[in-house]
């Protein structure tokens, strides 16, 4: 009897369930290592760094809250953070307003060439970030596309300088950068809506407009929230676009963080500024997540 018992135990160990568990454990190792090394460790290092102190060209191994206190004492920093939040918010809203019709049209209206248009919108992601930014400088600049066109049409006599080196140019370019990131999750969530749900809405008396308002839009909300978050993160932390196109007024929080690591050589303070951004952005994203999680989105 004893033998039988132990052999069943052995069998239980080799049961498909256990093998599956072991397999998913092994398969999970690379991604775990990757996450720890590439994401968790740097954030942790930055967090530790933010409590150190810069002295001349040295970083002292002390524990201090001075870097965080500096942020709250100096209103330039938190005002700039607020301004960056405002800009990132505007960018995300504009990106969604322009990306939604695009995603809706391509995912639900087009019958042919759907993949072609999808790729067309994704293509800019393959072009260097810097190249795309410089491209916008040539569009918005003094002798850029817009000014030249307006001059040639005789609408203006002198080139307008309102397009470049201010907040507007930063918002425009950030929006352009963000649109594919808004488009992809929106497209996915719109495409996932089963046709018979739309048929049911029409059948039950909903016009095209009512079907959109009552069925399609609510069901696309998860994609919309994801798109918003992606766009928000991209815009909030960016420092290259403000540096290239922002001039004096278009400067963002990211530039200040960057400056601490670069010119100012104050890594501890830069880390503290970075961590504050990280922390507040995380709170905003959690709120967005809660707002976006609607009951009964398609679960397999």
């Amino acid at each position: 009897m004893k033998n039988v018992k132990s052999s069943t135990k052995q069998l239980a160990f080799y049961s498909p369930k256990n093998i599956n568990n072991a397999r998913s454990f092994i398969l999970g190792i690379p991604i775990t290592v990757w996450l720890v090394l590439i994401v968790l460790v740097p954030v942790l290092l930055m967090f530790i760094m933010s409590f150190k102190q810069k002295s001349g060209y040295e970083i002292l191994n002390v524990f201090t809250f001075n870097n965080y206190l500096e942020f709250f004492k100096n209103e330039t920093y938190w005002k700039l953070l607020l301004k960056s939040f405002r800009m990132a918010f505007i960018v995300s809203i504009v990106a969604i307003i322009s990306g939604y019709p695009l995603a809706y049209f391509i995912s639900r209206r087009l019958r042919k060439f759907r993949n072609f248009f999808y790729m067309l919108i994704i293509t800019p992601l393959w072009v260097s970030y810097l190249v795309r930014i410089i491209a916008w400088r040539t569009i918005l600049g003094n002798r850029g596309l817009i000014n030249t066109a307006l001059l040639n049409l005789g609408i203006i006599k002198e080139p307008l300088s309102i397009f470049l080196y201010n907040q507007v140019s930063v918002v425009i370019t950030l929006t352009y950068i963000a649109i594919p990131f808004v488009f992809i999750p929106l497209y996915t969530s719109l495409e996932k809506i089963p046709n018979n749900i739309i048929d049911a809405a029409r059948d039950l008396g909903a016009s095209e407009f009512n079907t959109f308002i009552n069925v399609i839009f609510p069901l696309s909300l998860p994609g919309l929230v994801t798109g918003f978050m992606l766009s928000f993160i991209i815009a909030l932390g960016d420092y290259i676009i403000p540096a290239q196109l922002g001039g004096n007024t278009g400067i963002m929080y990211g530039n200040v963080v960057w400056a601490q690591f670069g010119g100012a050589f104050n890594w501890p303070f830069g880390s503290a500024l970075g961590f504050i951004l990280f922390f507040i952005a995380a709170i905003v994203l959690i709120i967005a997540q809660i707002f976006g999680s609607k009951e009964g989105i398609f679960v397999e």
Binding site: I197, R202, D203, V215, G296
Partner: peptide, 22 residues
């Protein structure tokens, strides 16, 4: 006459219950 103006209603094969409404 479009579907939404027709006085007939359909029970669909996989029911097509709106998942975001109770």
């Amino acid at each position: 006459v479009p579907a939404y103006k027709r006085d007939v209603n359909t029970v669909f094969q996989d029911y097509a219950i709106f998942p975001h409404m109770n």
